[in-house]
Simulated scan of single mutants.
Amino acid sequence: MISHISATYIYPITGPVIKNGVLAIDSKGVIMDVYTEEEAKAKQISDINYHKGLLVPGFVNTHCHLELSNLKGQIPKGTGLPEFVKWVIKSRSSDEYELNLAMLKADIEMHQNGIVAVADISNQLISKSLKISSPVYYFTFLEIMGFNPALAKDAMERAKQFKAELDPLSVSIVPHAPYSVSAELFDELRAYEEFQDGPLSIHNQETEDENAFFEHKTGEFLELFKFLGQDIEFYQPSGKTSLQTYIPLLSPQLKTLLVHNTYTSAEDVAYATSIHPNLYWCLCPRANMYIENALPDVNMLRKADLKITLGTDSLASNDSLSILSEMNLLQERFDVPTDELLKWAIFNGAEFLEIEERYGSFERGKRPGINLVDFTERNGKVILGDNITRLF
């Protein structure tokens, strides 16, 4: 049975905004057609369910840490990243029931907030059963770590075994961050490239101390390594920023998501894009404010015409898992147009995860999810509201 939904504005994402447009959908939410108001009238469609608001496809959360869901409210705000990492290590619990319950609540929260697909960071097996049974699509980034060059091969072997245990989930083995992965471990990942099942992800320049560590071997990361009991006497700084140091170590053939980018400069962007043609740039603004009380230079990133996606990070570093809330903050601070934000939050994420055949836009044959978002109009601009209703 076909039903018809209309709203003040429909955002197909891959086409122009349609005022008072109509979506034709089947009982499972598959898009059968998208009509303008005039086309719907010409077809004499009468069974239309009208809404005040914006109809948009489901959101794609390209950076989340489900395994930190039980740390909500436990870590102080504004500590800076190195101190935040210490808090995470000290606060993690081995109580599987507690963690499973927290992850389930987080999964339900994302579903209710209109998120249809998630790129999730995993270091354990514990989220596997939830991901298999969830109505949300999950792609798992299995993080690998090891700053000691002598341990690179062992770390890679453990990751490959872990990946096999996560079957049948879609999984890529990815570097955690440049300060936690040696050049030798990057080489191991590069050698494994042909066996990857999807794109890569890496935390990038989330704190000023990251650049200080690579440029001069200074900053709070030295204290973090002491806290971890790791001797890094062997390490010699490159004299370059973090991004300019590690980006040549990544395969330019694989789609790669750089996450956070809080302290990424225009020079970093120019260098990275000159040698890596498949970069995507994930913004997690509420987590950046929670940890560093800082935001990326969003207008610089926009000017560079980058493929930007959005993420929520974890409940350890955010008060909620809502892509709409991330867009609200970006619109408030940087006046990003609604249609641009929605492309970041929907299509770019689906394209990065290579799931755009189903998600990412209102097009015939897709089942991308349907969200109704409230809005206001100010000076001729559509401004996103705070409320969302998931229709499918």
Rank of each mutant, 00 (worst) to 15 (best):
G219P: 03
E233S: 15
I232L: 13
P237I: 01
Y235D: 09
P248W: 13
L224P: 00
K217V: 04
L254Y: 05
S251Q: 04
E220C: 04
S242L: 01
K226I: 08
H216P: 02
S238I: 09
F225V: 05
G229E: 10
T245S: 15
F213D: 00
Q236E: 12
F234A: 14
Q230P: 06
P248I: 11
E215K: 15
G229A: 12
P252T: 09
L243K: 00
V259W: 04
E210T: 08
F221V: 01
L258W: 04
Q253V: 07
L258Y: 05
L224G: 00
D231G: 13
F213C: 01
G229H: 12
V259F: 02
T218P: 03
L258S: 05
F227L: 05
E223N: 12
F225I: 06
Q236Y: 11
F214P: 00
T256M: 07
K255W: 10
L254K: 15
G229R: 12
L258Q: 03
I232H: 11
L243G: 00
F214H: 01
L257H: 09
S242A: 15
S238F: 10
K255R: 15
S251V: 02
D231N: 15
G229I: 09
L250S: 10
E223I: 01
N211K: 05
P248Q: 11
L243A: 13
S251Y: 07
D231A: 12
G219A: 06
L222Y: 06
F221P: 00
K255V: 08
K240D: 08
T218H: 06
G239I: 03
T245N: 14
P248R: 14
H216Q: 10
V259A: 03
I247N: 01
Q236H: 14
K226C: 08
G229V: 10
L222Q: 06
S242D: 01
L224R: 00
I232D: 04
E220S: 12
L249A: 11
K240G: 02
F213A: 01
V259L: 03
P252L: 05
Q244M: 12
K217L: 10
L257I: 07
L224V: 04
E233W: 09
L254A: 11
F225D: 08
L243W: 00
G229Y: 13
S251A: 07
P237Q: 08
T256Q: 05
F234H: 15
Y235T: 10
